[in-house]
Design a protein around this nucleic acid. Structure first.
Lengths: 324, 324
DNA sequence: GATTTGTTATACATTTAACGTATGACTATG
DNA sequence: CATAGTCATACGTTAAATGTATAACAAATC
């Protein structure tokens, strides 16, 4: 990022008000205050400081500039010609400073630029689009990069300029802040065709006899189920014939009768409703997965991120309630 | 001079960079330097300070602004979006500051505005006009108020905004700086018509018999003459029939034969040359008067005054050499 | 994989600077 | 002449900025 000399944009030349003269903005503001108050004592009162302090600041300014700004005695005060010029220029300069601060303050308060979010495929295509739409409605001028990824290496993306991500599963990276949004139920499903000619399993233990599909992001060769009423747990050893990292691919395979699978309820609701899939042993479920909004820990957050966090906090509970 | 609220021109509103955050200009300059150097250590080297100092200044700025300006680790650094905006705005602001300083520096180095000078009538009408003309030739844009006064209360004028004065006579006001320019010889003259039918005085003592004119600014009822060779002194009691504060009025009266007078040689040279006046007892003269450029003691002087002082110092000796 | 180098951030002690209080000097006013 | 209010300075205190030392980290090199 280093710029060579030809690109340097820092104003060059010797500074009249060198470092070590205290806060130069404050000196200029004090000078303006003195002029407008009409004497040093009144200026001190308006500035909330003492008359000697004001006197010293004026002298510091005059010394640094090498100019007499105010001709003053114990009872008279008038601007010199240099003082008049300085007064006019200082007003312009400090007005510029005020604009500078105002613009930065606006940046701090009004979202601007591009928000970059990673969301898992499972949510990014429908469930979170509602809040996203409302965010864009509320903030004209904002743009959003909505990146669908299931990659767990979220910290890499964030160091690459991503503002935040929706993460399913435990958040273990200490460099990230995790805002819990809810949980996703994970249920056991199979196609009716898979069950044709077989006894429908009445208990979790019977599931092991069936062919399995693995969503290897979440489970591979072993499944842990918990009884929703008694909270008993049963661990099953399975030998999946099919393994994927896509919930949708798993759904498709299950619908085709290739095997039993465990997936998030909300992604399977439609297939269950139209009979393409049936839930097996409904009282047994895999551990629900926490869903979190995660972003890097930092001292300050851009307004665009803060506004998004506020929105997701407000609506995320409804998006990921325990029924889902 | 106090302005009421409606006239106040100080930029209003809460300052993002409040007093107490150190020199705000320095913080901004440090930020720009970091961006252009590419890392904090290089910026520290270029700023002639230490890396921890640069780190703290950057953090002070970020804390005061409530914005993250630079995303940085031990080996990477990149501007955030807020940082990019701040960088652009800071350059503009500091360029404005540099112009501000440049203009003030110009004021310090280049004469500008109106120089106000008091000169005695005796000199202001011809002898000093030469240097004045050269001053105006050398400094385009300057204007000069050339005030002819013989009033000895120069300090009053100076408190009224006069930059300097040419003063004839001893300078006793401790608040003034006096630059000696030379001396003016004061000689005894009379009209030939006054001497008609009389013996021409051969010695200073014989002058008392003649009628006298007084230049009451310098002498009234007593005249002290000194012999230019033996340095003997003679004090004469005189009874002037005519008294004035104007050297020219005294000259006119002397030419008309109204009496003997003492005046500055250079103002009488022409009348002497064309026979209107003659010098009496040439080896006896009144004490010469010092001529000084005076101005109020001050910590700083505007450039227009400093340039004028330099010019008068350089040429004043020739203007008021001991022959005159 | 271990080591070196160079980075950023922080703790600590020192140095520097800014401040408020007290007060002197001055001048306008009553 | 006394009083009130001004500006400038001396002094001691407080606050802040600094440099040094160093920990933690990561890329580059061996």
């Amino acid at each position: 990022m280093a710029l060579d000399d030809s690109q340097s944009k820092i104003p060059s030349g010797t500074l009249l008000l060198p470092p070590g003269t205290g806060d130069r903005i404050e000196l200029m503001l004090t000078f303006l205050r003195i002029v407008e108050a009409g004497n040093l004592s009144a200026a001190a009162a308006q500035l909330g400081t003492t008359q000697p302090t004001v006197s010293r600041r004026l002298q510091t300014l005059e010394r640094a500039l090498g100019l007499r700004l105010l001709q003053r005695t114990t009872h008279t005060m008038r601007l010199t010609q240099d003082g008049e010029r300085c007064y006019e220029r200082a007003k312009e300069l400090l007005a510029g400073w005020a604009r500078f601060e105002s613009e930065l303050k606006g940046a701090r308060e009004e979202p601007e630029g591009t928000l970059r979010v990673i969301v898992p495929h499972a949510f990014g295509q429908d469930r979170l689009v509602g809040p996203l739409a409302r965010y864009l409605q509320q903030h004209a001028g904002m743009t959003v990069e909505w990146l669908l990824h299931d990659d767990r290496a979220i910290h890499d993306y964030i160091s690459a300029g991503i503002d935040c991500a929706i993460q399913v599963g435990e958040v273990t990276d200490p460099g990230l802040v995790a805002i819990p949004l809810g949980q996703v139920q994970r249920i056991v499903v199979a196609a009716p065709s898979l069950l044709a000619g077989r006894d429908v399993p009445q208990d979790a233990g019977e599931l092991a006899k069936l062919p399995w599909l693995a969503l290897h992001t979440y489970y591979r060769n072993e499944v842990l189920l918990e009884h929703t009423v008694s909270h008993k747990r049963k661990r099953l050893q399975i030998k999946p014939r099919f393994s994927t990292d896509s919930l949708y691919a798993l759904r498709s395979a299950a619908i085709r009768g290739l095997g039993v699978g465990i997936g998030s309820r909300w992604a399977l609701t439609e297939a269950l409703a139209n009979g393409q899939l049936v839930q097996l042993v409904p009282e047994w479920q895999a551990a629900p997965l926490p869903v979190s909004l995660v972003y890097p820990y930092a001292r300050f957050y851009p307004a665009r991120l803060r506004r998004f966090i506020d929105l997701i906090r407000a609506e995320g509970g409804a998006l990921f309630d325990s029924a889902g």
